[in-house]
């Protein structure tokens, strides 16, 4: 096994499971002013949708919550650039909530730790 393949597998092992398929149908996209603030545990800009996991602490306690967001390309055109969101950052999402009230949401807009919005 070559070093490069080992490196690839090691990198893959660090990569969290990706969303296999994507749909915004479970989110209430008419609600656009709902905000969620948390600590970044995962931030994976991707197409067709981005995956964001935040550690959130609220009435329900401290837990990790997964959000879906716009595509990498749409975030890029809205101002996101590589390195703008780092693990451990405290960020805020304008997130359309789930229709059934469970944890999660669709990140319509991201407010990075330095205040940059995309």
């Amino acid at each position: 096994m070559t070093k490069s393949l080992l490196a690839l597998l090691y990198a893959a092992a660090l990569t969290p499971p990706a969303l296999a398929h994507h749909s915004a149908a479970r989110f209430d996209l008419t609600i656009r002013d709902h905000t969620v603030t948390g600590i970044v545990k995962e931030f994976h800009p991707a197409n067709p949708h981005t995956k964001i996991v935040l550690e959130i602490a609220d009435d329900k306690g401290k837990r990790d919550v997964e959000f879906e967001g716009h595509s990498l390309n749409n975030y890029y055109r809205a101002g996101w650039r590589e390195g703008m969101v780092k693990l451990g950052d405290k960020i805020t999402l304008y997130a359309a909530p789930t229709k059934d009230g469970t944890d999660g949401g669709y990140a319509l807009e991201v407010v990075a730790a330095d205040g940059t919005r995309f």
Binding site: L8, L9, A12, A13, T15, P17, A18, L19, A20, H44, A46, K51
Partner: peptide, 10 residues
């Protein structure tokens, strides 16, 4: 992402 997930599974 699907390819990365597959590599992780392997």
């Amino acid at each position: 992402p699907a390819w990365e997930a597959h590599l992780e599974e392997l």
